[in-house]
Design a protein around this nucleic acid. Sequence first.
DNA 1: GGCTCGACTTTGAGCGATCAAAGTCTAGCT
DNA 2: AGCTAGACTTTGATCGCTCAAAGTCGAGCC
Lengths: 219, 219
Amino acid sequence: MPSSTVENYLKAILRLSDESPDEALVGIGRIATALELTSGTVTTMMKHLGKEGFVDYQPRKGVVLTETGRAAAVQVLRRHRLIELFLVEVMHLDWAHVHEEAEVLEHVLSDRMVERIDEMLGRPAHDPHGDPIPNAEGVVREDEFKALSECEPGEYQLVRVARDEPDFLRWLQEQGLRPGAGIEVRGIDKLAGIVEIRVDGGEQSLRIGEAVAGVLGVS
Amino acid sequence: MPSSTVENYLKAILRLSDESPDEALVGIGRIATALELTSGTVTTMMKHLGKEGFVDYQPRKGVVLTETGRAAAVQVLRRHRLIELFLVEVMHLDWAHVHEEAEVLEHVLSDRMVERIDEMLGRPAHDPHGDPIPNAEGVVREDEFKALSECEPGEYQLVRVARDEPDFLRWLQEQGLRPGAGIEVRGIDKLAGIVEIRVDGGEQSLRIGEAVAGVLGVS
DNA sequence: GGCTCGACTTTGAGCGATCAAAGTCTAGCT
DNA sequence: AGCTAGACTTTGATCGCTCAAAGTCGAGCC
């Protein structure tokens, strides 16, 4: 049974390797930055994870998740996402706060609890950020979407929010920008780095920066 | 913020001192047995807890909880009991399994979560074993009851089950013996150490040993 | 080919929690 | 008073995780 520490490493490696699918290996430094640890600590851990069969550790190059490692990481992701949804839907906690809470619960809830949550929520496919929830077998059904920042003017639907900061999420919520909302892209000012949108049949235009628009996935 | 380890020590000391209210101090050995640790470990921890102001440590004698320590312990108890009830009432987990789960969650749920649970359950006064749930201020409303093993024949109501083993709880449940159930004491055979009861208008008599009857509180 | 700079690894240390085993009190008996 | 058994404390060690700082490697530049 991997400790929560190990689970966090695994989760981070999964995320990082998904973030740059072109690179074969995830570098030690990136992991260190992601987890806010020194690289020495990460090196030590990678050797250990290597021995345990969770990663393939190539000294001075980086690591790849093994099958086992990937499966374990996906299970953590599944738990995290189910828990987030549970906290929003059942506990009626604020979308904005749910991430931190899930961050600890994901390592701690029994399989029985997670199964019960999955059942209560009707085997949901997406968490409150629109991220796909892997099923119990670890199969993730990835869905198509593109960044709002890359869109031509037109009608879209918000399907994904790729950021966790409470303040940002709270603001999004105030603007009616939660997964499922309709978005009309009215114009893009490439030079100014600004996207002008209208949310869900509302009246007013909303101007958001490219970076923010890049974090919103639409379809 | 006390670690879960510390919280567990505190909880154990609270329980042990409530178990023998006549003794002024809880001995190191009892704590060690309760937590399945060596006494050396406990001694070390008690010195530490002493410095932190959670207990008054009297070398070679034992410890008493300070005000601070007691308050912290009661909060853990509150969490534990609220969580147990939540798991039964909301998550519909089995009464028998709920203790272990609560044992970990009590150290980990945010105050916000606990408050939400308390609210969802309507500020309940008792957990699934019939134990009183301290309120947010740490006030415990103890209620009157006596051990079934001490009862004259007559009609009673089960209000308390002072044991946590899943197998035992499952058996109780199968007999209809959950807090709230009516119990008729039909006879006591002191010499054989057996109590004969009838559960909640059922037909058959049930014979239980003194030790088991001692764990059931009725009023 | 040699050098350098940045990325990675190694080393030595600390912290919190734990143990086993050796040492010390002390209450209570003789 | 002296002894002893049992309860408690001390000591030295381990384990998982972490850090700072010193050491090493190697890709790319001259």
